[in-house]
Amino acid sequence: MKNENVCEAVDGELKVAIEARDLTKQYGEFTAVNDLNLKVFDGEFFGLLGPNGAGKTTTVKMLTGLSKPTKGEALIMGANIMERPLDVKRIIGVVPEVSNIYVEMTAWENLIFAAELYDVPRGEAVERIKMLLEVFGLYERRHDKSANFSKGMRRRLTIAMALVHNPRVLFLDEPTSGLDVQSTRNIREVVRRLNRDGVTVFMTTHFIDEADNLCNRVGIINKGQLVALDTPERLKQKIGGRVSIEVSLQPIPSLEELKEVSSDVMKTGDKFIVYTENPSITISELIKLANAKEWKIISVKTLTPSLEDVFVKLTGLTAVDVERLELIRPSGRGRGRE
């Protein structure tokens, strides 16, 4: 649903869909988001990455009008959300971190309610709702109370409700967090398709693979500050000097033993990741150490820097923190291999 009242901001040749200007949010003495400046272009798939408590959700809340910034302004298609909230809200769809459906109502009733809130004409709404229910695999359960839905189904219904008015800009706050593989794949596919059809997507996630695979550009936020903003590949190049080696040994040594080779070692499953500036020297030392300790080398791979490496470097997370993130991540590492 286009809204002609909202003018479109243009930055050079590109239309700016979302803009944060000095966006700041303070809760008492605590600064959740500090002077955030950001532009997301029309049709772009943008990912905001950051550890828990970094300020991702607060940023989305300020950009969508759920929270008033302490300082600065948020613009959607050139319109200030605080000055022209109704015009902006007509063209955005928001999927919050928590699936906020009415569990007392059926999937169909939830979607009809959402359509009525956005003034979607009845006939158009019914057609669109049928299509959304099909796309999200909920059509057969459309007359069931959503209290009986699984977490994945509730999430899919929440996203369907955000799409019922055909928004031009879609905000997704941790859309796949805690979901099963099937729901995750379904949601990623739908969002990817929407973006292909021209919808601007702003997604927060702590799944680094998700951002790497879906986003045109990513921003990394840490402690309320944007510490990086670029395409995933350019971000990887920026820390290019650092390569890692994945090694699998038998018997499995301790982390401390491998620190003889490099102080920056991380254990992941039954393998170790050794970070180094000079991979050939490190591999020689690894072989030397394995021979000395009578370990059998099962495999050795050199790995190019991943978005995760960028994330770790910029957010200052420890190896233990990253392992914790790994535990809640639905898919593999997604690291480029040489």
Binding site: L66, K89, I92, P96, N100, Y102, A114, M161
Partner: peptide
């Protein structure tokens, strides 16, 4: 408590 109030705040409703 259920977060549904955000749905109303985010809708084009004064």
């Amino acid at each position: 408590r259920s977060g549904t109030i955000d749905r109303l705040i985010l809708a084009p409703v004064s």
